[in-house]
Design a protein around this nucleic acid. Structure first.
Lengths: 202, 202, 202, 202
DNA sequence: TATGAATGAGGTTTCATTCAT
DNA sequence: CATGAATGAAACCTCATTCAT
């Protein structure tokens, strides 16, 4: 029988890699970097541990590629894009984002945030990975700074160094996302309203 | 030399246990449950790793006894006691507590919080321990509820279900404590002021 | 297209086997038995690793069949044949052979010697293979004995039991071949002259 | 009961390390670097594999320290020392050394030479180890150069670049040592006499 | 016939736990 | 009570071998 053609192989390969990366992100998010065993990732992906090494050189590479992949496809990017185009007030934009972040905090989408959170508390992570994730954080900060400035000018947000305020706000959100995700599902709107008071005037 | 009497031996034994538990809490707090090695605890305590097993049956038992011990003597209790007796406004009490919590987040005192945080993200913790730690949380909530009610009556705090608001506030604090402790040391007062806006009226 | 007939298929099959065996010998020679990975042989042969298992049952079988094949067609046989027919002195014959052996020690031709060398230092090789390779050694000894006797009669070679002297000479040559092959390329003629002094009269 | 005192511990530690290094050298010599499994070393030393890691950080460190240790205590050093002080002819010195080298080729003493031989044919050996072993080789060459020069002046040895001749001689000896050690035990004196002819005049 | 995806045994290394002293 | 030597289970990773296509 003829071997599979290049396209079919490419499909299998991609599917498998994604299958593994999805499982990896989930497992890294739940267990932290060091505690995630390759065997767990493999079990989560429904494959043998050996196959993980067919597609990735090492656990480290699984982590790194999974992060890259998740960043690329992370809906949050799209979401930020849409958000920046919406014709609503800066206040509303931030409120929407907060809701989005906290409501997704149990979904696949949030795994990457939790993994990044873990990364920062873990020793011995290669610097190229740390650089990568730090850039992600910086990207968020830079996305929100103009929105905050606009909000300050409109009198919606408190005064002060926008970078500092945005940093504080995102730090707290990410700290909270890593925490118990169920907490936020009950009465979410009310909770978010309280949360937002930190940065809103009025 | 006369042999030590029963009581003296018991004292020495207790001293040692405390020495180990103190070291254990610190190490568990910094590294998480699974990543904490007995040898690290022993080194932190300045003893041999073998000795740990004279006083505790297993790593798990070190963890549980350390938690129990820390809860019993946690200064935070004392601090809460003092706080409740202070003749300052509810707002000021909460501000003080917030500052205390965040500024201690690198001190011995905060270890227990971080360990509890770790516990909740770790599988296979026996339920009696989890119950135990959950009670800690409930205790805090119950401590602050009357203070919040008082503050609401004085018009200092926002209106709403006090239990819910206190829960939200403490959840965010604990999420934030598990995060990078250094973040809070810079400009702490300003950051706390922003943080407090969540619950204060204007 | 008409299907290939039985003979053509057999030819293709043989071509492939030879292609694999040639690659295997080289790889075994360079890396030793246990350290040679099937994937390396496959890469050297320019095929997929899976295909190796169509032609051979196991890595072991690749080794054995490769050895047998190489022995059958080893150019050295031809070379020895030519050598025996040359009308030069025994001394010159041995010198030529020595040069041939050492200069080929990086060529395909020498792979089999190096593999045999490896075999002798490897545990768990089935005895029929070991017998087989030992016979190779004996064959060489027997080839050279008459030449040495002739040389001794001509006063070119030192006196003594020819079998012992030939054994010694070949042992040293084979020990030396397994060593760094580059060493011999520099100043080869001078080195060989020194080497030959062992057995020549002055 | 009181713990062992420092001296007793030191004794145990040293004994164990030596026990492991002795086993390691033997195993490395017999199987090569890559093929030597820690479990084999442990079995040869009669201990558990875990204990090897109590005394050495890694397989690599076992190798390196074993080599260092073997070099330090290698009788060959002493032997060379004695040799240099003997009042015999250079020819006799070299003959003695040859005999010593070949007769020890199955003893513990020779393991180090075989290990070094393996090292040179193995990829991925850290350069500090290679440097170390190369220095060993250079040391031997430098030891023998003056003896050869003296021998040349006395007309005992063949003329030519002493460094080259010594290099050739030692290369052949080491190649031969790595080979079948039993071969040399029979009729050793006669074989050595033939071997020596390479470099002697007369 | 040919490919490479998939598996799992086996090797290295770490570390909780036991135990002789 | 105290030490650290010793063990072995379990994690990472490699690679011979099988198998669907």
């Amino acid at each position: 029988m003829a071997p599979l053609n290049e396209e079919q192989l490419e499909n299998i390969r991609n599917e498998r890699k994604i299958q593994i990366m999805r499982a990896a992100l989930k497992t890294f998010a739940e267990n932290g970097i060091k505690l995630t065993k390759i065997s767990l990732i493999a079990k989560e992906a429904g494959i043998s541990h050996g196959l993980v090494y067919h597609y990735f050189k090492s656990k480290e590479e699984v982590l790194y590629e999974s992060l890259e992949w998740a960043m690329e496809l992370n809906e949050t990017h799209e979401y930020l894009n849409e958000l920046s185009k919406m014709s609503v007030s800066p206040l509303e934009k931030v409120r929407q984002f907060t809701k989005y972040a906290l409501s997704s905090s149990k979904s696949e989408n949030s795994h990457i945030f939790r993994v990044i959170q873990h990364l920062e508390n873990t020793d011995g992570i290669p610097s190229h990975i740390l650089d990568f994730t730090r850039n992600v954080g910086i990207m968020y900060v830079e996305f929100f700074i103009p929105i905050f400035i606009e909000g300050q000018e409109a009198g919606e947000f408190i005064q002060g160094d926008p970078e500092e305020i945005v940093g504080l706000f995102l730090t707290i959100i990410s700290g909270v996302m890593a925490d118990d995700p169920d907490f936020w599902h009950e009465n979410m709107d009310r909770k978010i309203e309280i949360f937002m008071r930190m940065i809103t005037t009025r």
